[in-house]
């Protein structure tokens, strides 16, 4: 009698466990990932390693009153490249921007320049915009472990008329932390054109988790860039001057925090 009860219990336990686990929809997962992305003002320092070259980069970002964000990326090291910059103003799937190289001046980015490499690395403007998160009708296509982390795979397809360089994206999402542990981008074929693999996720002061170490691999040319977060400060106070043409063409430190 005891043995039968034990067997029944062992069979029922997984079912009971399953019943207690919440199942997220694809929309909920994508909404969670979007909510976890820093939305206010931010200052960050990054270390990028590409093809043996190390770049130290600073990032200034602020939310815009009309929606969207404005970001300024600038190279701090090596000395011969200090001052190279990328300015992006993004709102949903549209963007305006410009690049700056001290010896060459400012070049305005057109809407078709989404594949512009950031400082010659495997990261491009499309990666910074992360517009795939706004694509409609996400769909859960599987469950898989990425590293040791159980993930739900969500697939998104670019809508008709999308300016994105990709037509499809697959995200491996850690449901517990709403963190994308891996993202694969596809063109018309089934082989990914680009992969972003997250190595480390940390919990910020907002309580949300953010990837801080990740590798971007461009499968079209076999290049890869390792991006490591060095430090970040949230709720910094920026003014229009911090994103002006003058600021774009000179390197200034992070402003103080909001009062």
């Amino acid at each position: 009698m005891t043995m039968r009860f034990a067997i029944l219990f062992a069979v029922l336990m997984p079912a009971l466990n399953f019943a207690q686990t919440k199942t997220f929809t694809a929309r909920e997962l994508i909404a969670g990932v979007k909510a976890a992305r820093p939305s206010g003002s931010l200052y960050a320092r990054l270390r990028m390693e590409h093809g043996g070259t190390v770049l130290q980069v600073q990032v200034k970002r602020r939310a815009l009153p009309e929606g969207g964000s404005e970001s300024l990326y600038q190279v701090l090291f090596p000395a011969e490249r200090k001052g190279e910059g990328l300015l992006l103003k993004a709102r949903r799937n549209a963007f305006t921007g410009a690049t700056f190289v001290p010896s060459k001046g400012v070049r305005t980015l057109k809407s078709g320049d989404r594949d512009t490499a950031v400082f010659g690395t495997a990261v491009d403007v499309e990666d910074l915009l992360a517009s795939f998160l706004n694509w409609p009708d996400p769909e859960i296509v599987g469950q898989e472990k990425e590293g040791n982390i159980p993930c739900t795979i969500v697939e998104l397809r670019a809508p008709k008329g999308s300016a994105s360089t990709f037509s499809r994206a697959r995200c491996w999402i850690d449901e517990k932390r709403y963190a994308t542990m891996r993202v694969e981008f596809f063109g018309s074929r089934d082989k990914p054109l680009k992969t972003v693999t997250t190595h480390k996720v940390i919990r910020g002061s907002s309580g949300f988790y953010s990837p801080v170490n990740f590798t971007v691999t461009d499968h079209t040319n076999g290049s890869s860039t390792k991006v490591e977060g060095v430090r970040s400060d949230s709720d910094v106070t920026y003014s229009d001057a911090d994103f002006s043409e003058a600021a774009f063409q000179s390197v200034t430190p992070a402003p103080g925090k909001g009062g």
Partner: peptide, 9 residues
């Protein structure tokens, strides 16, 4: 030698 630390040299 010079050394770059954050935005300063």
């Amino acid at each position: 030698d010079k050394i770059t630390i954050e935005v300063e040299e």
